[in-house]
């Protein structure tokens, strides 16, 4: 269902609020966007272009390109993009 942030003994930066296709989401500032989305229950980020099957972050290290989203209109890899207050995230990948 979602990634789970460990709370025991962990301190994180203050939450930043951003929008995902118009929906408000909060996450610690600087957390990788792929993590923040999955922690908010948004595991599926796009459909594959040929087979049309749902996809989400897979490698979490910048290689697989499965977590591609748009941020403020630009194509980015969510796992390499730190959360910033006010960012406008669009799901649907590069064909959006």
């Amino acid at each position: 269902m979602s990634l789970v942030r460990v709370s025991n003994g962990v301190t994180r930066p203050a939450a930043a609020t951003f929008a995902v296709d118009g929906m408000e989401v909060s996450a610690p500032a600087g957390e990788p966007l792929a993590t923040a989305l999955a922690a908010a229950g948004l595991l599926g980020l796009r459909d594959s272009p040929r087979g049309g099957t749902p996809r989400g972050a897979f490698c979490h290290m910048g290689l697989c390109q499965e977590c591609v989203v748009t941020v403020d209109g630009r194509i980015v890899q969510a796992c390499l993009t730190p959360v910033r207050a006010g960012m406008q995230v669009g799901l649907g990948g590069t064909l959006r």
Partner: peptide
């Protein structure tokens, strides 16, 4: 030696 390039799939 002709250079070529290609994008990923885009809209």
């Amino acid at each position: 030696v002709n250079q070529l390039s290609v994008t990923e799939r885009i809209r």
